[in-house]
Amino acid sequence: MATVNNDIKTYKGFRAITLLCLLVLYAPLVIVTIYSFNASASITNWEGLSFRWYADVFTGPESDKFKVAAFNSFTIAIMAATASTTIATLAATAMVRGGKFKLRTVSFGLISLPLMVPEIVTAVATLIFFNSIGFTRGYLTILVAHIAFCIPFAYLPISARMQGIEDSFEQAAMDLYATKRQAFTKVLMPLMAPGIISGFLLAFIVSLDDFIITNFVKGAGVETLPTAIFGSVKQGIKPNIMAISTMLLSFSIVMVTISYFVSKSDNTK
């Protein structure tokens, strides 16, 4: 492929469109980042550089609300990502290393169900479900809903990684009298690490960012960061929200960078 003349590959204008695309993607975020450092309380006038809105996030009148929301968001995201990654790893092992079986397609359909159903439908269905079994909405309802819809996001990178690992490593271990359990935990799992980490991070971020489903299943006074932010931005975006957004953006960039380097080390095979 590398021998193909570059002139044949490239098309005039595609670079310009790509740059336009990046401009469109980044312009709103850059603007929000810039205005988060605005000294003015007004979102429309620029009155000099200041960190007051960052201080406001931690000490201002709404700080308690956002601290609690951040705590809820991160604990839910960690637990949901851990649970869904575990479930997805087990499922991937069955799907990739379990031979051919009748329910394989059905299982795959079930696992990818949260990806196929529009989010608003999942949200409504979950609300109806909790309501009909008389389950009081709160922290726990958010957590179980997140575990469920994070499973496919954890599953995809994990199963992709597993398909890329040749079976011969485990076979070799078992030839040397390792039990299946040992082959799984001592051989397959370490090789799987990059895939599991990507799956975990993906599930973590998806849970951290979810608004629609959380908004439907959350209970009284239990806010996550997105629902707390929504409560504020509906009345117009305020500088403290811009500061929170910028911090979340930085956090996401760090996470994605980590997963980027993890997947780069994915050249072991």
């Binding site: 609300l127 909790f130 309501n131 389950f135 009081t136 909405r137 709160g138 209970g219 009284a220 006074g221």
Partner: peptide
């Protein structure tokens, strides 16, 4: 109505 009664 959607189940929040009893939590507020």
């Amino acid at each position: 109505k959607a189940g929040a009664i009893g939590t507020y």
